[in-house]
Design a protein around this nucleic acid. Sequence first.
DNA 1: GAGTCGAATATGTCTAGACATATTGTGCGG
DNA 2: CCGCACAATATGTCTAGACATATTCGACTC
Lengths: 242, 242
Amino acid sequence: MTRPAPLHELIRARLEQEILSGQRPPGSRLPFETELAAEWNCARMTVGRAINALVEAGMVQRRRRAGTFVTRRSVQETVLDIHAVAEEVRASGRTYAYRRLARRESGAGAVEMERLGVAEGAPVLLVVGLHLADGEAHAVEERLINLTAAPEAGRERFEEAPPGDWLLAQVPWTEARHEISALAADGETARRLGISAGTACLCLERRTWKSGEAVTWARFIYPADRQRFTARLRQPGGRRGE
Amino acid sequence: MTRPAPLHELIRARLEQEILSGQRPPGSRLPFETELAAEWNCARMTVGRAINALVEAGMVQRRRRAGTFVTRRSVQETVLDIHAVAEEVRASGRTYAYRRLARRESGAGAVEMERLGVAEGAPVLLVVGLHLADGEAHAVEERLINLTAAPEAGRERFEEAPPGDWLLAQVPWTEARHEISALAADGETARRLGISAGTACLCLERRTWKSGEAVTWARFIYPADRQRFTARLRQPGGRRGE
DNA sequence: GAGTCGAATATGTCTAGACATATTGTGCGG
DNA sequence: CCGCACAATATGTCTAGACATATTCGACTC
């Protein structure tokens, strides 16, 4: 039994369908709110709400006095889900394990300055760890933590659990950025992953900030055959997990 | 001069800040709409609108009779912008060019069945092309088009312009999915890109549907040093391009 | 103690107005 | 013909209500 959809949802769905079908081509003007309100026999605010959802989805743009116009589609904005490595592995039905390979506190050098965006000599913590799936190397994680932003991290050993989990729980971030690239494994990485040097690898870099201050930088390196990222188009009217 | 922000926006920003700062921890209940309305001295619908924006951003969940609760953060949902290759190249200030390498119409075999999800023997079009930046190979594009879904594509040569542009204009899709992976260049790909076989490459696969029917499959292969994808965290209250 | 039913209540949707504000078109004067 | 002031207008925001609906809580029964 499907509950009756609210009116603003019906209006939104109808307009969306007309846009996607090409019936309302990019650049064309939608009927004015008052016209739609008369057509659907409802208040202007109800159609306004429907149209605002389309604005939110990037399908139309509104200009006062001019009207509402169908957006020209140019950039495909897709949604990429990046889980924690442990979840990725468990989701595929394998057992997950973690092993710390190295831990070092130091003052920021050139590399750390670039990766974290901190001043020279600022205290930073480097942790290198290996993520295992069914006992086999799944990914190498290199992690830099800005100890100025997260001083409590200096007291953690990160021997049993990866720093990501701890940071997520301890330091709420407000902004994060990801970069996905490919690279050939260098000697050390190859040795850690048990592959031969030069093997193609997928690389995910993540930078996290809390209110403008860099908290952590992380790089995950996966052998090419062991990981891929999937993204789906943002569903314009998609309801969020129920 | 910043225009005065609307009240629902102020309320949303305030609540968001309280959530991000940890002042309102995950699982905690927000004040009831009526309480917030009294606190801000406004109508209930105004605070409702503010809270709905937080729902949209996935920061809170609402349950009738129970109230509104701060969501536990689990999956990081990020937004990935995937431009057309031509735009990517031009955005970096280089000149863009395209060269078609091959074109073949045939009935779907095992590979095409898997990639497009069509029946055996269904008419498909394969186009292979090279994207060039400043005269240098930037990416190889392999493209399969379902001629049942887009029969007009059979009359196109795709010699000057890549099929992506034409398809985008002709066949509005309703769903698309992307996969990003790394691979080592095979002999033919390496030759086309002017690199040596085995070089690490970044690979983007895209599948596009129109109302449930597969329209096209595309695979872009970039040498590792020539492309990376960036994603940013979905800005909860981010305004869309103005 | 377990289960059932009904009342209480917070959210969900909607209306018919109001006024604000950005932008467009127009007419007037130079 | 150009520029400028002004009126027209479509969206943007907000209100004070109304009724619907899902969920919870408590009272009552077995």
